[in-house]
Amino acid sequence: MKIKLNIWKQSNAKSKGKFERFELDGVDEEMSFLEMLDALNEKLIGENKEPVAFEHDCREGICGSCGLYINGHPHGTGSEIGTCQLHMREFKDGDTITVEPWRAQSFPVLKDLIVDRNAFDKIMAAGGFVSVDAGQAPDANANLVNKNKADKAFDAASCIGCGACVAACKNSSAMLFVAAKASQLSLLPQGKVEAKRRALNMVAKMDELGFGSCTNTGACEIECPKGISIEYIGQLNREYLSASFSEAE
């Protein structure tokens, strides 16, 4: 296949970016999207040009590094996949593919398709944990956990922190991420103790970092590579509301 690419190029956080056009021949339909970009970069290096910078690591849909906005969708149009799991068999010979970085005020572009998602780490530091030191843990079977709740906590915990939810949202809200993280812990007895404090602190940090408001359009759920449900947003809202009315412990 021959593919035309329209890729966002930007030297660094301070410079102005623009779209550049590339053409790539010999694209095999078995290639993953990132392998196609590898091939483009090998070609560019061969022509003594600068390769396109993009983030990637595990290439099996679990590390959450790769996040590209492809033809208007985070991770492309496939269902519940990361960019690394998108394959070129989804495209046709002669297609033009537009590739952009996540666009969100809280995720500034560092170079080309690489954005800074450090804001997620900051939200986690604000409360996405259980306060327990090594050595303080009780026996793991001391707290019995209802299987359905454990499964629900797991579904929330399957978030890979890629940021597609923010990229998909017209307001660049991080609600799905925060809700998944907070709910995972508050659904479990060991995390319930500080659930209120956690909800207040994580939401406050999210607001402080410039993420937008949630208006329940549900775009985040549709684009989430792990299919995390917006039900968790409801759960976080309830927790947040109840915490706001009671004094956080």
Binding site: F129, V130, V132, A134, Q136, A137, P138, D139, A140, N141, N143, L144, V145, N146, K147, A150, A153, F154, A157, Q184, L185, L188, Q190, G191
Partner: peptide, 18 residues
């Protein structure tokens, strides 16, 4: 014990044990 205390959602039996 430590990982469970930190909130790792290990698989559970219906009785609630690991």
């Amino acid at each position: 014990d430590q990982l469970t205390a930190q909130g790792v959602p290990f698989a559970r039996e219906y009785g609630g044990t690991l």
